[in-house]
Simulated assay, not measured.
Amino acid sequence: MIFGSIDLRQYFKIKNIKKGMLPPIENITQQRPGRDGVTLRRTKIKPRSISAEIEIKGSSKENLNIIIRHLANTLYTPNLNELRFPDELDKFYMAKLEGDTDLDEILYYGNTMLNFICPDPIAYGQLRKIQFENRLKAYNKGTYQSLGIIIVEIIENMDHLKVTLLNTGEFLYLEDNFISGDIVVIDLEEEYIAKNGYSLMSRLYLESDFFPIPVGEFEILVSSGNVTLEYRERWL
């Protein structure tokens, strides 16, 4: 188990890991006046909890206490950290320790349960970086839609820039005076666009949509420019 950049197995042995096949799922429903049953409005994925039962072993009681102090310092973090497991090191969750860590001690052995909360319940995989001109046809190997960044290097003077996800027809349309050498950065996660470091949101058409990168095969069309797409695979 790796938390942040530290392999926690130097401190303990993992006896058991408990994590659901899927994060908790909540179906939002609405009563149908005068009719039986309910109408399904939407489905939410809730935060994921992951638990690890561990055993800490010291060479003496004093040594056990030293290990516990070092481990406590490693586990207590103000922010979320990457959490990876030995059987799937190519994927990680953004997690934080929560709850009690009461230790059952016998001689110089200690057993406890580490409980992690993942506010974002989706696992992250490989970072993909793809360069193309105008049109891209690619494959997202993850099992959950991804978000990312599209960087467009303008190669000719023009009065608009359009980026379209051909799978759905969703697009981003910007009307501005673009000149060769301008760099436009489209952040699909933060829903923000900048040109040469300055906001371009006021030049974005209202009909525009910040689209996700779908699972499986997808196509993106850019009206003009040298383009770089960066996204990280996401996994249920």
Rank of each mutant, 00 (worst) to 15 (best):
F3W: 01
G4L: 06
S5C: 10
I6Y: 10
I6C: 12
L8P: 01
Y11G: 05
Y11M: 06
F12S: 13
F12Q: 12
N16E: 15
M21L: 14
P23W: 01
P24M: 00
N27R: 06
T29C: 06
Q31M: 05
Q31G: 07
Q31I: 03
G34Y: 02
R35F: 11
R35K: 12
D36C: 15
D36Y: 00
G37C: 11
P47F: 01
P47R: 05
R48V: 09
S49I: 04
I50T: 10
S51H: 07
I54L: 04
E55C: 05
E55H: 06
E62Y: 02
L64V: 08
I66V: 08
N73E: 15
T74R: 02
T74I: 13
L75F: 10
L75N: 08
Y76P: 09
T77E: 11
N79M: 07
N81W: 00
E82I: 04
P86A: 09
P86I: 12
E88Y: 01
L89S: 13
D90T: 04
F92D: 03
F92C: 09
A95E: 11
L97R: 03
D102L: 09
D104R: 00
D104Y: 00
E105Q: 15
I106N: 07
I106G: 05
L107F: 06
G110I: 01
G110P: 01
N111V: 09
T112I: 02
N115A: 05
F116I: 04
I117S: 14
C118H: 07
P121E: 02
I122H: 01
Y124R: 15
G125L: 11
K129V: 15
K129G: 14
K129C: 15
I130K: 12
Q131Y: 09
Q131C: 11
F132K: 02
Y139K: 11
N140F: 02
K141Q: 07
Y144M: 13
L147V: 12
V152S: 07
I155H: 01
I155L: 13
M158K: 11
H160F: 13
L161Y: 04
L161P: 10
L161N: 06
V163I: 15
N167K: 08
N167M: 12
T168W: 06
T168D: 10
F171Q: 10
I179D: 14
G181Q: 07
E190K: 09
Y192S: 09
A194R: 08
G197S: 11
S199E: 14
M201N: 14
S202Q: 04
L204K: 07
L204R: 12
Y205E: 08
F210V: 03
F211R: 01
F211S: 02
F211E: 03
I213S: 03
I213H: 05
I213K: 04
I213W: 05
G216F: 04
F218W: 02
E219N: 10
I220G: 01
S223Q: 06
G225E: 09
T228M: 06
E230D: 09
Y231L: 01
E233Y: 03
